[in-house]
Every structure is written in C-alpha cells, then in structure tokens.
Design a protein around this nucleic acid. Structure first.
Length: 420
DNA sequence: TCTGGGGTCCTAGGACCC
DNA sequence: TCTGGGGTCCTAGGACCC
C-alpha cells in the first residue's frame, strides 16, 4: 500500500497558547521570548510581517517593540506542554499511528483513509482548533519530507487555507520549485550555502541533483533527503520513539555570577531538576557532566570548563548527584571569571529496573527510593519547587529573568482563568 | 547593560592493534 | 632511495531539528 503522511503543525505555537487565554491578543503583534527573556522564539503573523526574525535578541528590537506596541511574554513552558498534550490527544482521533515529532508537530499515518485526503486534512484542522483553540496547518505527502514541503506551502498559500495535499498532485513539481532549498527538511544553513553555490536553489533542482555528488558532499542524510523529495520513503513513521540518550539541564544566569556559592546553588538546582526528569522517565544515569562557562559573546577571556563524573552504579538519587556535582564545581570554579551559564548533562541512561549494582554502596536503596518519591510527589502536587534542596539556596539571585510570565492557566488551581 | 534550551546523528581524525 | 595497511574504537565537533 502506498504510504501517506500528514504533518500537522501548530501555527506560531507559543503565541497561540497565550492567545487562547487572552483573546484580546488576537490580531495584535505578539512575541514569546526564550529563557532569560533573551531571544524571540515565537512570533505572531503581525510580528513576522514587521520583518522581525526568529531568534533575534530582544534588546536589538526594543525600538520596534515600543513603536508597534508588541506584546511580549516570557516562555511559559508548563502551559505550552499542557496545551501540546491537548492537541496531541485530539490528533489521536484521526489515526491509529502517529509520531509526536516535537512540542508542536506530529506526523500522522493516513494510509487507508478512504475519504479524499484534502477533506480529511480540513477535518483535522477544524477539530483541533475547535477543541483546543490552537490553529494548525496540515501538509500531506507520500514521504515525511514531502509532507513538510506541503505544510510549508499550505502556510503561505491563501488558497490552501492551511491544508495542502501533494499526494498524486499534478502540481508537485511546481510545489517543489516554489520551495527554497533552505526550507527543505534536513537542509540547514551550511548545506544551503553549498547547494546554492552549485546552482541548486529550490527543492525541485535538489530532487534532480546527482546522487554521487550529494553523497560525497552531504553524507547519507543528504542523499536520503533527495530520495524523499523524489517520493522514495527513507524515514518511516516512528510511533514508538526510542528511550532517550541524554538529559540536559542548562540555563543562563539573570546576571553575572562571580562567587562560588552562587555557582554551586545554580548547579545544585540544575542537578535537582535533572534528577526529577530522570525519575519521571524511570531512568538512572551512569555518567554526569557538569559544566560552567562565561558569556560566549566575550571577545577575550572566554571560559569553558567541564567535569565528568562516572558513578560506580547508575543512580537516580539526587543526593548522590548533588554531592558529586558540588565537588565538581570546586574544581571548575575560577576566581575572576564572570560566569554566565552552568549546565548538567546526564548520560549512560539505563532503565531504573535494570541497574547494575556497584561493588560498594547501594545498601540504602529502598530508603533513597522512597525519599525521592515523596519529594517528587510533593513538588508535582504543589506545582514546582515547593521542596528544595538546601544546596539550591533560598534567594537565588542568579535566576534567569522571567519578567513577562503568564499564568499556568491549565495546571495550577490558583491560576485558573476566571470568567466574570 | 541585554544574545535560549534540549535533543540526535554523522564524520573526521587520532590512538591503538595486528 | 625511501614511507605498510587495514581494522576498530573513541572523541570532538559539526550539522541539523524544533
């Protein structure tokens, strides 16, 4: 049977989430900022029309924000994650096989659907918007890469109104021709530069490029992209994503950190968060890397240092990770450095129930487990950081900026939206 | 003054071995 | 006049994604 993929993508997802709970933002220019209120990570169409690019620093567009009265929001990840799961739950109505590809995108297997695909796509679009308030675009193609192309064009075509089916379409070549090569899934900035230098400007000419040359210049993934554009499926729907390989918690500081006590607090709170994620997914880590760095924009005296800890047995015990991390900071700290970021990476992740016991220790396993369980339960019940480790500090003056944070409308009893 | 966070995979090159 | 070759494993860095 011929394969059919739909890519459903939420429009301006973070901005759309904010609009659901504040409809007065409809039609107004809105941006959502990254952590530390640093960069633009989501823009409404009105903001895109002003020529404000994805990822620019907020301070660089301060003038435009003022001039055009742009509403700004800090990232409210709790809200977005909850809205995402509502969207995904809705999408499950339309297919037995779905791959949740990111917080705002999913690939749906539409093989075997016996109504016209365009109509079906429209139905998906209308239902998601009606049930969740989030507007979405649906692109349909015979490979994932072509579904992406369809989605890209559906967003830009007035006639498509957010739904485009390219399967068996006589317009496929025209569609590929209208797609700039840098918009093709898998072609990033550096490949795009190389391709254009070779005269390949759009998806159509990429699909006709010489395989040997592509393989040599862009590796196996480049070749797969070309095949996919031709309609040869290289990427299957992955509806059972593999267990992840790493957990990263890293943040910039709201201001420079120069004393070791504050650096330790920041690392401790990252470790604490990483431990929560670990236990949430029923994993344990064999290796932990702690790193600290100055601003990466410094011209000189840039500083980056990391320290790798290998545990004698995989662990999910925050206390054990904290102890090791605090020693690491002692080794990484350097007087006179203006630290701007710290991070914790967990690797060697194994399912919790398959931990290889170390030769030493491990005798209070039961105690550790119940302690972690209680802490996680209290924190999830009261929405966040009700219980903190002493090492995380109390004032936390280094915390990232979040000056424009909206409420946790859907996950926090005392922040529910009110109807008057 | 101010510049995100969290992932995956591939490749090239060095170390080492026979 | 002369330089081996090929395999494996590891790691750092690059590229890409959202």
């Amino acid at each position: 049977m011929k394969k059919i993929f739909a890519l459903v993508d939420c429009n301006n997802f973070y901005v759309s989430c904010e609009r659901v709970f504040d409809p007065s933002l409809e039609g107004e220019p809105v941006i959502v900022m990254s952590n530390n209120d640093g960069c633009v990570v989501s823009r409404s169409n009105e903001v895109k029309a002003l020529g404000i690019k994805m990822g620019v620093a907020v301070f660089e567009i301060a003038g435009q924000i003022e001039k055009h009265n742009i509403e700004t929001f800090s990232s409210n990840y709790t809200l977005y994650a909850d809205m995402s799961s509502r969207v995904m739950r809705t999408l499950w109505q339309f297919t037995p096989n779905m791959e949740i590809y990111s917080i705002d995108e999913a690939f749906l297997d539409l093989g075997g659907i016996d109504v016209p695909l365009g109509e079906y796509g429209r139905k998906i679009q209308e239902t998601v918007t009606k049930w969740t308030g989030i507007p979405v675009t649906v692109g349909i193609g015979s490979t994932k890469t072509l579904a992406k192309v369809a989605n890209y064009l559906a967003k830009r075509s007035a006639r498509a109104k957010g739904v485009l089916d390219l399967t068996g379409s006589v317009h496929l070549e025209t569609a590929l021709e209208k797609t700039p090569v840098e918009k093709v899934w898998g072609i990033g900035i550096s490949s795009a530069v190389k391709l254009k230098r070779a005269g390949i400007e759009n998806a159509l000419s990429l699909s006709k490029a010489d395989s040997n040359w592509i393989r040599q210049k862009f590796g196996v993934n480049g070749l797969r992209t070309v095949y996919e554009l031709k309609g040869d499926c290289c990427y299957e729907l992955d509806d059972n994503p593999p267990v992840r390989k790493s957990i990263v918690v890293s943040r910039m500081f709201g201001r420079d950190v120069e004393v070791i006590e504050e650096l330790k607090q920041a690392v401790a709170s990252h470790v604490s968060r990483a431990g929560e994620k670990l236990r949430q997914e029923k994993l344990a880590a064999e290796v932990m890397t702690v790193y600290v760095m100055s601003s990466r924009f410094l011209k000189k005296n840039r500083y980056l240092n990391y320290y790798i800890i290998t545990f004698t047995a995989a662990t999910d015990d925050t206390r054990q990770m904290l102890g090791a991390a605090m020693e690491a900071v002692e080794k990484l700290y350097k007087e006179g450095v203006k630290f701007k970021r710290a991070g914790v990476v967990l690797n060697g992740l194994v399912p919790k129930d398959k931990i290889q016991l170390g030769l030493f220790g491990g005798c209070d396993k039961g105690k550790s487990e119940s302690l972690m369980k209680v802490i996680d339960k209290i924190n999830s019940r009261f929405g966040g950081r009700g219980l903190r480790w002493a090492a995380e500090g109390f004032e936390q003056p280094w915390q990232a900026k979040q000056n424009r944070l909206s409420k946790k409308y859907t996950t926090q009893w005392d922040e529910l939206p009110q109807v008057r």
